[in-house]
Each structure stands twice: as structure tokens, then as C-alpha cells.
Write a protein that binds this DNA or RNA. Sequence first.
DNA 1: GCAATAGTGTCTATTAGACAATATGGG
DNA 2: CCCATATTGTCTAATAGACACTATTGC
Lengths: 225, 225
Amino acid sequence: MSVTKTLFPLVSVDVALFSIERDRLGVLLVKRANEPELHRWALPGGVLKPDLDANLESAARRVLQAKISVDVPHLEEVRTFSGAERDPRGWSVAVLFYALLPADRVQAVISSKIEEAKWAPAARTGHRLAFDHDRQLDAALGALRRKVEEHTLPLHLLPSRFTLTALQHTCELILERRFDKAAFRRRLKTSSDLQAVPGEFVRGVQRPAQLYEARPGFTFARSSS
Amino acid sequence: MSVTKTLFPLVSVDVALFSIERDRLGVLLVKRANEPELHRWALPGGVLKPDLDANLESAARRVLQAKISVDVPHLEEVRTFSGAERDPRGWSVAVLFYALLPADRVQAVISSKIEEAKWAPAARTGHRLAFDHDRQLDAALGALRRKVEEHTLPLHLLPSRFTLTALQHTCELILERRFDKAAFRRRLKTSSDLQAVPGEFVRGVQRPAQLYEARPGFTFARSSS
DNA sequence: GCAATAGTGTCTATTAGACAATATGGG
DNA sequence: CCCATATTGTCTAATAGACACTATTGC
């Protein structure tokens, strides 16, 4: 093992990519094609390349592009995972991001994938993931839920135009909890995140439902500084 | 410049150490003793040493110990700052933490310091800090304020025993906003974070004030996962 | 008693949840 | 008309802020 491995940590990014699929909150898993942890399911991730990446967030976008050919509308840092034990290749730092993908682009991801990939229920994947990715997924899901819990709207998980019922249903899938319809809508009325699309409705065997879209400038990111 | 510099990023940790001093929220600044940014005030920080550090949080603790000989009761990751431009030495990743120091240990830090250090008002230091540390301090202060805003008690900024008035005053200094006394105390009564110390009071020219302490197991950390 | 701060009680405005009522298109 | 779902209204409980009141000590 070279000297650099003990003096420089391995820096990588991992991404928990969330979307709504099969009426649940799903996370994208990829099957590892290399040692270590060959053939085990994992969050998409990759090693930072300073010559290619402007910063860690760019690295995360590059990884998603390389593994599953997808551009995501929202990407946010969660936290780091570090130490000598988490990866057998040596002392490593993984910077975890989560990303949101609109539900209407779920199929595109699977069909354009480069490596073997699949959607799994975010809360219970049914696999033991590679490395510390089970903990990472827990942390990413916790971060997403906290945001929605504090009333930030996960609009990036929806098509560009959506009904209030669809939005409520999305929040319910994330938090695994039902909301009261009247209270939910009352809150949205006083929010500046949404605007109705005049004259646009979804029709069915019932009263037409008004379509809404995100106000220009809407962002899921926290008002950090 | 060696090849390693372009293949491996420089990984370092920076710490915004907060405390209450001179009746305000202070942050500890150290004067840089080396190039680059020689003699400029900065957040204490240092390069990760995989042979010494179990993980990034340990690295942050080691840096505080080395620069100002202090052990902090609370340390929490904020986010990363990364890219080729933030440090003239090359592509770098800085992992930012904030730390809380009890007010009764403020003097000890300054007197035991190894490098030149001082406390400055956290919200307006009065300096342009080295590298991107102005942005880092903004982010750390934002993270601390969000926590207090969502009703987490910054008990690590107080002595082990304190009055409710002192606790309220600390919160007010952090958020730069006054609270209503009755509402503040009502909230604390239903919280499980505090317990009265039976028979312990602070006496003065007024009615004695009950002393409180943190319940065993209290933590300022977020219930992440 | 007086000053000073500790600690409590009360009123009101706001908000969330429960639940019911009304609206409107397709068949 | 009937069904299904959209959308709105009402009642109530919980909570936060404003403000005032009472309590207890040193002097």
C-alpha cells in the first residue's frame, strides 16, 4: 500500500436518490460491479476527481450522470462519514447527498442506466447495503423527512404541474403519516411556494382538480446562512 | 507541485467555537501563523491526519486541543466547503463543525492558548476572515440559530447549574431577539431536558432563583436518523 | 416598607386537527 | 340522478405572545 493512502484519505461522494414509484418513496440502488463488496447493492457513489469536479456537489452530479445518466433538479448535502473502518481500502471520507427526482422521470432512470440499478422502498430496502450505506440511507431519509416535517414542500418529487391532492399524497408517503386535507390546504394558501395554473385542470369521474406549479424561485434548500 | 496535489484533495476541518462572553455570543478566532493568509484572523482549523484521527470529528477535537488546549462538550458537523479556489494550495475540502463552550470556561481558553487567539462577536466579527471563513461562520451561526429556533436548549453554553433567567438570556443573545418570560418558562415545564436541583438557589437582592441542570442524557445533537 | 428580580395567571390571536358540508364533472 | 373526488366551512384543542399580577429576598 502506497504512502499516499496513509497520508491522504480517499474522498468520495454518495447519493441517496429519492423519487415516488409504485406509490411509495423509493431510493435508487445500484449493484456494485467491483471489489470490495462486489455484487452488493449500494447507493450510487464515486471517488472525487479534482481535475473534473468544481466542488463536491458537482462530483455528486457527475456520479449520477455516469452511473444512471440522470440530471436531478435538487441535490443537497446531508453529512460526512469518515474513518479507517468504513471502507477496506483505507481511511476514507464519504460526503453524503440526497437528491430528488420527479416521479414522471422514474422510468427514464431505469431504462438509461449504465450499471444494474433498481428502485427499492426507501424506508425498508430489504437489503443489507454495501459499506455503511444502511446508515447513510437512514441519515438521508431523516434529513428529507425533517425538511418536509418543517413544511418545506418536496415539489421536486412531482411533475412540473400537479394537483394539491398529489402533493399531499407525496408528503404522506415521505412521512408515512396521514394529514388532514383541510389543514393541509389552508397552509398552502398562505404559502408563497405555489401558484395555480389558470384554466388548467385534471378531469375525471369527479369535480376537476386545479393544477398548481412551483412559484419562480422556489427552492427546497434550507435558508442556511 | 506534486502529482498527489491534483489527484487527492487537501482535507481539513474548521471549527466555529461559540461561547457567551461579555454578554454576547462570541466566536473564537485565531491569528494565522503561516502562509497563506499569514496574520489574518481565521476559525481554528487544521489538516486531517489519518494516522492520528479516528474520524473527522476526532480531527476537529484534536485541532481544538492543539490550537487552544480545550475540550468541548459539544461538537457538531455543519457542512463541507470544497473546490479549487477556496485555498491557494489547491483543490481542498473543508469540513465545518461548530462547538459550544460553557460561559464559565471562556477565560481558560484564552489563557491556555498556544497561538494568538481572541473572542469576537459571532454575528459581526469586525474582520475579514481568512479563506472562506466568513461564509463558514455564517453557515455555523445559521445552524446554531436554527437549532435554538426549533426549541433545542443550548445548555452546553451554560455552567452545569444555571437559572431559567440565564438560560433565556443565552437564547436571546443567540437569536438577537427577546422572548416572553412566561411563554419561555411554560415551554420548559413540559420539556424533559431540564430538572431543578432541589434546595439549590441563587440569592441576591431579590427572590431566590431556582437552579436547574440538564437531565442525564440531554444532547444538543439532532435526532438525525 | 422598598427595590429588584423570580415566578405565575389570564386574556387573546393564531394554528392544527377533526369532521362535516358543499361543489362539480362524468356517467 | 348517483358517484367520486375537489374544495370549503366550522368547531375545538393546543400554543404563543402580551401583559399584569403575586412572591420572596436584601436592605
